[in-house]
Design a protein around this nucleic acid. Sequence first.
DNA 1: GGGCTGAATGACAGCGCTGTCCCTGGCGTC
DNA 2: GACGCCAGGGACAGCGCTGTCATTCAGCCC
Lengths: 344, 344
Amino acid sequence: MSKATIYDVARVANVSIKTVSRVLNGEPKASAETRARVMEAARSLNYTPSLSARALSGSRSFLIALVSSGGVSDNAMLYVTELQLGAIQACRAGGYHLLTEYIDAGTSDFSALAETLVSTLRVDGVILIPPLCDDPQLLSLLARRGVTCVRISPTLDGSAEEKWGWGVDIDNYQAAFQMTRHLMDQGHRDIGFIQGHPKHAAAAQREAGYRDALFDGGPIPEHLIQPGLFTFDSGLPAARALLEQKRRPTAIFAANDSMAMAVLSVAYKMGIPVPGALSVAGIDDLPAASVVCPPLTTVRQPVMEMGAAAARFIIDRTAGQVGSYLKKVFDHSLVVRESTAPPA
Amino acid sequence: MSKATIYDVARVANVSIKTVSRVLNGEPKASAETRARVMEAARSLNYTPSLSARALSGSRSFLIALVSSGGVSDNAMLYVTELQLGAIQACRAGGYHLLTEYIDAGTSDFSALAETLVSTLRVDGVILIPPLCDDPQLLSLLARRGVTCVRISPTLDGSAEEKWGWGVDIDNYQAAFQMTRHLMDQGHRDIGFIQGHPKHAAAAQREAGYRDALFDGGPIPEHLIQPGLFTFDSGLPAARALLEQKRRPTAIFAANDSMAMAVLSVAYKMGIPVPGALSVAGIDDLPAASVVCPPLTTVRQPVMEMGAAAARFIIDRTAGQVGSYLKKVFDHSLVVRESTAPPA
DNA sequence: GGGCTGAATGACAGCGCTGTCCCTGGCGTC
DNA sequence: GACGCCAGGGACAGCGCTGTCATTCAGCCC
């Protein structure tokens, strides 16, 4: 009842511990009959193998680490939570476990982190979240140690990516393009844009999608484009800059939901009705997006699935399958809610 | 560079591995000089002990599990994220690591979970989040196996609690009492209340605080009190019920922020200006609370600290210190933002 | 000075698994 | 009929630590 070991199972099934090990790990050498006997014994004893022992003697640790940085205040945290949920589910399905590690944004003591991950924990893989997934130092540290990395929405790419691990993302260009077109289809022409963090590839791709959809290579009224950093706070001044212009845009498309919410907030303070006098759109579909007033039109990305895929990739890879795409691109979808409407 | 073991350290420091172990674990028997020599050797080799080996041979695993249930959509997820952050920091400080496990809300396959936690992972402790922290089955399963549990905002108490582990919470009664009084100080008399989940002790305590503050033992106009479940969705009908009454309350106090946001949403749809014609308040201070329009007046609980305390308790307990309070109550604080104002 | 004490350290046996190598016996082959 | 082969299964040696117990050697007492 308390703690069955592989020895107990072996005794009950009347085989050697090695055979039990083989059966439990799905290794080939084992007759169907033996297999059944072992399984039955394990079940009856309520046996669960010890992770530590497996990790110590074998080559797998059945551990995956999800590493994040940044604070709670940051709405991006929600994104992490959702990713994590997906990863946990994939882990559970594969007999793995998810460790959550955190590194302070300021600290760049990556070598200690890497050492812990590799030597102490011996994790089978690491899931890296922006901006960590773009830090060359951390990446190369991990790569040198032979750790499988999966990078969420990575920025650095090309040959480097091959070396630095797999990645998951959505087609940010298309997402922004489609959202801009949605606004245009509603009749908007003066569509303001708030940029994302300049160091993040997704930001540039989203902006490109917006520009191509709206101007199609034509002249670009730069006053419609304001800088932002993907945070709520950075969206505030950007929104103000856009809304205080003599000829106010009829719609504002922010590079993510956090900043779109900032637009909502500024519009509210300035007494501009949304979507009556201003349409607002974002990207990400944060949980909060459906809760704000009015509910935000945005682009949904399958964050949970992305987290699950990341974990699954590590699990499969450790198990021997060498799926080595450079990056997996997930489908996104437009979520039209109440913050957008045709201009008055 | 790649993987230093305790043997390497022992060789360099010219002592036995047992001595290295002693020094690294802070055990008493070791001269200052030896200690220094070992530390130096370990540093120079960049040595990090293997968790698996330690767990396998010793009695500690240096692992703490945070177990949650419920979906992302649920805003409560934010609460979990923040708790987790605190727990991670405490773990890091104590050389521990945080495992995040998840169990589907529907599934009540607690025995498999417990088995995994105990046999496979051998965790040193478990942090349980509502409603898991109130499940007698899971609790007794864990208790029987001798796992240290910390329950976040637990409901079951009394003698049972002693057996079922430590708990952390805030004084929900006082929090609600103070918020209600804040509203009354502003001049409100018709203050509606939206209840929390009936199975959660915090819900009852918050309601009691509200009732005592507002009615002080006097007659209770039940039409001012509407049922809720702590979720945004459950807040919608409750808010509607309150706001459609002939004599509308001038303020609504929801038992948590998610439901308060639902009130904001309904008020917005009904064209009721907040806080002009209606004040709205919640409890929790979710990150989203400061982002909605208008920013929500609420009660902040030190969630991160609570998570850290939970982890710290497990770590200290495993290390031998037997701090055994039944529950630690943290301070809360009123956060007055823009959703409340004196009635017109 | 012999014996006792206790602090400092080491020897050694596992912890519960997996990797590697080896043994066994039934079957096909020429 | 002797030989080879291979599926099926076992023996055994660790993996890198910690727990337990033994050993050493100052210092100290009478």
